[in-house]
């Protein structure tokens, strides 16, 4: 994992090979709950990226100071701090989006992707790689959210970023912006992802964790 030369790999693996949503299937709750429009997905992705980036920075800086026995508690305190900050910032700067996302911003705390990266990477790596890893995972997560959000908004509302795309003759599939649409979209995207990944590489075995 510790690749001082292959910094680019550290970043890129989060985008595809170890994508937190499509490969590891982590952080399902925000992935499905707030992706009914592209804008909400983007906001959630950005908030998660922010929290992941700064948590990794702090955890990596403090990795020699944090005692092993209380590390999880410490990580959670750090993560919760940044989530509270992002919650306040969104409420102050973009109150409409904050209202749409509601309690799901606070729920970033229990997004396993973030705690997972602290434990698996930031805690045992220097600041540089840790930040690259966080950025890669965060961008990979945001990309996945945006993909789901785009599909759901296009089909469910006939628009993209609130701009009508299909014209008035299109009858929106309302179910796509309702909860079942979240399950269906992710289900089908996973199907596509699995198919592509399988064709690309029969050599690598895909580990699906719950």
């Amino acid at each position: 994992m510790n690749t001082p030369d292959g910094h680019w790999d550290v970043f890129v693996k989060g985008l595809w090979k170890e994508n937190p949503v499509f490969v590891a299937v982590l952080g399902m709750c925000p992935t499905l709950a707030v992706t009914n429009t592209a804008i909400n997905s983007l906001a959630m992705g950005a908030a998660t990226l922010f929290v992941l980036f700064f948590s990794s920075l702090l955890v990596s800086l403090l990795r020699k100071v944090i005692a092993k026995q209380v590390r999880i508690t410490t990580y959670i305190v750090i993560i919760a701090t940044f989530v509270s900050l992002v919650d306040m910032l969104l409420a102050a700067l973009v109150p409409d989006i904050h209202k749409e996302l509601g309690a799901f911003i606070a729920l970033i705390v229990v997004n396993c992707v973030i705690l997972g990266r602290q434990e698996a990477f930031a805690a045992s790596n220097r600041v540089g790689p840790a930040l690259l890893d966080a950025a890669g995972m965060g961008v990979g997560f945001s990309m996945a959210l945006l993909m789901i959000g785009v599909v759901r908004e296009l089909l469910g509302n006939g628009s993209l970023f609130d701009i009508p795309v299909f014209g008035s003759s299109f009858e929106p599939w309302i179910v796509m912006i309702l909860p079942p649409g979240g399950f269906f979209t992710l289900g089908f995207l996973l199907l596509i992802f699995n198919t592509v990944a399988r064709r690309r590489a029969t050599r690598s075995s895909i580990v699906t964790k719950a």
Partner: peptide
Amino acid sequence: TALSLIVAG
């Protein structure tokens, strides 16, 4: 997971 998600939907 893909099947579970569609069943869940």
